[in-house]
Design a binder for these strands. Sequence first.
DNA 1: TTTGGCACTCCTGAGTGATGAGTGCCAAAA
DNA 2: TTTTGGCACTCATCACTCAGGAGTGCCAAA
Lengths: 354, 354
Amino acid sequence: MMTNSITAKGLNERAQHLLKVLVEHYIRDGEPVGSRTLSRDSGLELSPASIRNVMADLEELGFIAAPHTSAGRVPTVKGYRLFVDTLLAIKPLEQQEIHLIQQKLTSNDLNQRSLLASASTMLSAITRMAGVVTLPRREYIAWRHIEFLPLSEHRVLAILVINEGEVQNRILKLDHSYDSNTLQQISNYLNTHFTGKEIHAARAELLNELNRTRVNMNNLMLAAISMAEKVFEGQGRETGRSYVIAGETNLMEWAELSDVEKLRRLFDAFNQQRDILHLLDKCIAADGVQIFIGEESGYGVLDECSVVTAPYSVGDEVVGVLGVIGPTRMAYERVIPIVDLTAKLLGAALNPHK
Amino acid sequence: MMTNSITAKGLNERAQHLLKVLVEHYIRDGEPVGSRTLSRDSGLELSPASIRNVMADLEELGFIAAPHTSAGRVPTVKGYRLFVDTLLAIKPLEQQEIHLIQQKLTSNDLNQRSLLASASTMLSAITRMAGVVTLPRREYIAWRHIEFLPLSEHRVLAILVINEGEVQNRILKLDHSYDSNTLQQISNYLNTHFTGKEIHAARAELLNELNRTRVNMNNLMLAAISMAEKVFEGQGRETGRSYVIAGETNLMEWAELSDVEKLRRLFDAFNQQRDILHLLDKCIAADGVQIFIGEESGYGVLDECSVVTAPYSVGDEVVGVLGVIGPTRMAYERVIPIVDLTAKLLGAALNPHK
DNA sequence: TTTGGCACTCCTGAGTGATGAGTGCCAAAA
DNA sequence: TTTTGGCACTCATCACTCAGGAGTGCCAAA
């Protein structure tokens, strides 16, 4: 046994360094790296044979693996994990990149949705992978404004504004027909009662009202309540967490994902939203960049992908998560600061007080 | 020379029949079909050798081609074209399918956008290809309602409703700050002047007003006009024709599109929207189902796809196009009536007078 | 005009062997 | 004790060949 030997507890300097160089190499070229290459590029003055000894140990401990007997080694998930956690040298962003991100997140004066979309697109463009941004959710959803417009007999357009300018709209089909004036009165009633209140509280209050005084309530009041209730029915669905994704097609350029069947499953998962959303929701609790490597995510479709996420906040409330999805052999040292910065800047851009 | 010979003018009965059977076969199996198969399945009592004579003629005239010497024949674009135009027996839809389409297009009471999305999804699900629906555009865009809500200093949320309940919203950054009351007055002013008018006319009128009386105009009036103008700036972009696409991933299941590089270009085109939109816009003039087979579309990425479209109307104004994108060897006899019916039903579902 | 026969083409898939990259192990050197 | 050169070994890859089979074109006979 060597005194300097590698134990389960930790790797010695040399082993760590070699693992680092190996992972970096593999991320660059995507091809298994062998002892000769490592000997040449590691900076250590070691022969391939010595390197092989270390590699054998690294393999035994599960940090690297050989696709087949006479190929070089490839990092395992465990290897990437160690690399990312302790060996990685984060590369500070170029001034130019910072500017680019800043610009894409501020030059936009349309609305929130389009801001999120452009964040997602920017992430995908700058990393050449797929970018995702969840829609922000608030614990506290403030009733801002409601408006009803008559469309035709029995059909009314309802427009609900919540929080800082999130607009939802929906067509209601009603039993009675209301004229423009009545609708105005209804919305006035609702707005004066509920503007600024929390929306679930408002709903509860409405339901309460409805049950309590069903008998001696005037028509208008009843109409107002049932109409608002109809709006709420749709509320859950519309707001039901979802995300904006961009640049999925970038993933087709990575050789390790060039299998059509795998791509199909991956893209289906993107469209389905369910699993991806689940994963992203987990990250909302983390207080910084979080990384899922390969199978770590726990969703089969992502087995050959890594996901780098960061939560973003408005004010001091964490409201959403954004990130990047790409192959496990992505350039973490670049992606991590990009995701980190984007989260911070998006939060700032969404902040209403500016 | 045969008396019954095949001329450039037209094919004789037999040749047409054999072409039809060949195309049907190829659409079913996706594999080149040979003379033996045709002899067996054509219903004609002909030996493979006789069939071969006909096939040689069909090939010379460019209706079919052989991928290589000892493979069967495959329809060319010209072959598909003849098949679709004159040989195809449209299969009437099953009652069950009609119900399905009807249901997907009516069970929806949210808003226009989600109706279009569900039409697109339904098309893709029922055909196992990609479904597209362009957003409806109206020649005549009616100003319906405008509303301004103060968000913070200098930031105002503008909500513009046009036509039958299409809602657009946008955040305006302004020089002055306005209180809720003033904004109310402004929107009142705009709504009373413009509700029901054509939106471009309204804009022209506004600009006119602005130039004419810039000097002796009261503050409110000026604010109203410049604010409306800000809304219009975004108008073009938002409304600028686009489409809803669904089920792109279905295309990955077709063997002829299993090349990742091709798929990438195709999906990029879907995201880009430009070319596809161009193509769809051409179909708005046709008065029924229109079909582009392979290179006929003129866009390289679609060389191995066919596009089946139909315009849809609200009232008696054609407002959009919907359709299906799939491999050239799609089941036209099924797809055509599906697209046709969907266009009719979507038009009906969008009709405001019901 | 149709058909059987036949030579021919060419894709496909299986098998082969050479090449080369990379390994593990061992004994000698440092 | 650690490092290293040497060496046998493994295995993916590639080019090559070869048999099998599907399908063709052509021709002469029916």
